[in-house]
């Protein structure tokens, strides 16, 4: 990598590739999910993620008192009759709000990731496949968007358009896109010089078929890693924005918002903060471990590795 960098741009892409773009293994084919589950990270990550997701999906059904008041006072002690983990300063049951507060986060996170993946993968693959000036222009534009951190970008958008759900999803998805495009592009560049792509061209396979049948299956590894990472970051950003008070607005039940509302009382009623903090931590750790196991599965040649 560094040894055969002939220009600074090569160096840059080599630098980011080494960490982020695993080489797709070319040897014995074992289904991807089996390779993922063969990793310790894969098993742990999947379990944690599933637990949190199931909790957020089913939670609201179990304890449907998320936004209404159930107590008349601020109950700081856990295991009180007002709720397993007490109430917040408005007397709302912490456990109920906790169980209800994860769904939006997960849904927004997934939507933003999907948006970013679709847009980014298409741009990246096209840039690499078409090449030439198109590639150069696309990558320069990418650099411009990369110059502003995603969170600052989101804040800029919220200033203009207001703190609404679709704004969060769109701006986070679209700011993921150039980053994903970079990975998709370099993964594609790694594959595009392969002779089987040239062979498909030689047999005059329609270009969309070349992209879909010959290219895409060979970059699913790096793309899946990227999807896992981007999901982790999406959840992080959306939770952060909620925490900043710029996501869901009160009186909605939402983990980030809960942390913001209850953090003043951290020392007397820690559960209102700690439950959502732990949940967000577990969720992001779970998805990140999954992303890591995708990377290992992509690079590994067999189940044992």
């Amino acid at each position: 990598m560094s040894t055969d960098a002939n220009s600074l741009d090569d160096l840059k892409s080599a630098a980011t590739d080494a960490a982020e773009v695993p080489k797709e293994s070319q040897t014995t084919y074992v289904p991807f999910y089996k390779r993922v589950l063969a990793q310790k990270q894969g098993k742990i990550g999947l379990t944690i993620t599933l637990v949190i997701v199931v909790l957020s999906l089913c939670g609201p059904l179990l304890l449907p008192w998320a936004t209404g008041n159930t107590a008349t006072e601020f109950v700081t002690k856990p295991f009180s009759p007002y709720g397993l983990f007490g109430s917040d300063n408005l007397g709302r049951d912490v456990l109920s709000r906790f169980l209800a507060g994860g769904l939006t986060l997960i849904v927004y996170g997934v939507l933003a990731t999907v948006l970013g993946m679709v847009v980014g993968a298409i741009i990246g693959m096209l840039a690499a496949y078409v090449g030439g000036r198109f590639d150069a222009v696309i990558m320069r534009l990418n650099d411009v968007i990369l110059a502003i951190p995603q969170l600052v970008f989101a804040l800029l958008a919220i200033t203009v358009l207001g703190p609404q759900g679709w704004v969060l999803v769109t701006v986070i998805g679209l700011t993921h896109a150039p980053r994903i495009a970079r990975v998709a592009r370099s993964a594609t560049l790694g594959v595009i010089t392969e002779d089987y792509i040239k062979a498909a061209e030689m047999y005059a396979m329609p270009r969309w078929k070349v992209l879909l049948r010959e290219l895409l299956p060979n970059i699913t590894g790096p793309l899946s890693v990227e999807a896992g990472l981007r999901l982790t970051y999406s959840i992080g950003y959306i939770a952060s924005l909620s925490f900043l008070g710029l996501g869901l607005q009160p009186p909605a039940a939402d983990w980030g918002l809960m942390i913001n509302e209850n953090r003043i009382a951290l020392s007397i009623q820690p559960w209102g903060v700690l439950l959502p903090v732990i949940a967000i931590a577990l969720l992001t750790i779970g998805t990140n471990l999954l992303a890591d196991s995708f990377a290992r599965a992509t690079a590994s040649t067999s189940v044992e590795a």
Binding site: D195, Y196, E201, M202, Y203, A204, P217, N218
Partner: peptide, 28 residues
């Protein structure tokens, strides 16, 4: 360009690539 050649012409000339490790799609 092979894309512009007629079907018959394309069929007439076939090319075998240097590296057997690169000329077949590993996913198919």
């Amino acid at each position: 360009s092979t894309r512009k050649r007629s079907n018959e012409q394309r069929v007439g000339i076939q090319y075998v690539f240097q590296s057997p490790f690169s000329s077949l799609n590993p996913r198919r």
